[in-house]
Amino acid sequence: MKKEKVRRLISASAMLFPLLLTVAILTSLVLKALPIISLKSLPTLIFSSAWQPQKGHFGLWPFILGTLWVTITAFILAAPVAIFTSIYLAEYAPGKLKKILAPGLDLLAGLPSVIYGLWGILLIVPFISKYLAPLFSSYGSGYSILAAGIVLAVMILPTIINISVEVLNSVPTELKEAALALGATKFEVIYYVAMKKARPGLIAACALGLSRAFGETIAVMMVVGNVPEVPHTLFSPAYPLPALLANNYGEMLSIPGYDSILNFAALLLLLIVLIFSLMSRLYLNRLKRRS
């Protein structure tokens, strides 16, 4: 009986570990970020575009904008293609084709970001600088928001597709048949019935893709140019928050405040993820209660 108690205690604390870890990460980042927050005001840190650490200017706005631009570009490029593809795979594709494609998608969902970044450097960046940007009379290295957006979009495609296909497959065949039996075309069945039934799942899949794009570091920093300026067009380089951390964290001890501002940047990333998770949890709970 005593053994059972010990086991219970150990496994209970293991269960609580994720909870404690979340709190630990949050507190340690808050503590490390406090010095710079108390030194400058929060709005200055967030909304100022002056980034000159040597002179004590720590405005994160260019980095925040960079993150937003890149994430949103990736999402806009990826979501429609991913949803259409999953519709094709779930509703139209012959069984054999699905069997061939599934392992490919799995592999690509598991490919490390450095591989995607490499592909971006080899293919996307030159493509943008040589062919795409000149069309819009913009000339540059190709290392740009668009490059990062495309690479990220491709990266999150398999994630969104895999989940969406699963969600669409879970719509009962009988329900689709019921709609077909009323004389609906395939499009009408998919659009008015299957996608409506699967909507929470499809939204969850997209949210997952969005959050993956948001936090991606290596692939983005390889192709985005890393210039700390407010971006103007899709062909401008940018410098998203994760890239800022990756390039500078750990080597920042000599400049006063630098260490704290980088921790603040990490805290920002964490808070955005936290808010995002909370919102999607609330949304899902509301759906659950309604049905």
Partner: peptide, 20 residues
């Protein structure tokens, strides 16, 4: 096909109400 199916109402084993 859609016009053929329109000529026939279908009741399935379990009622399949549309999500609306």
């Amino acid at each position: 096909v859609t016009l053929i199916r329109k000529k026939m109402g279908l009741l399935s084993q379990r009622p399949q109400v549309l999500p609306m």
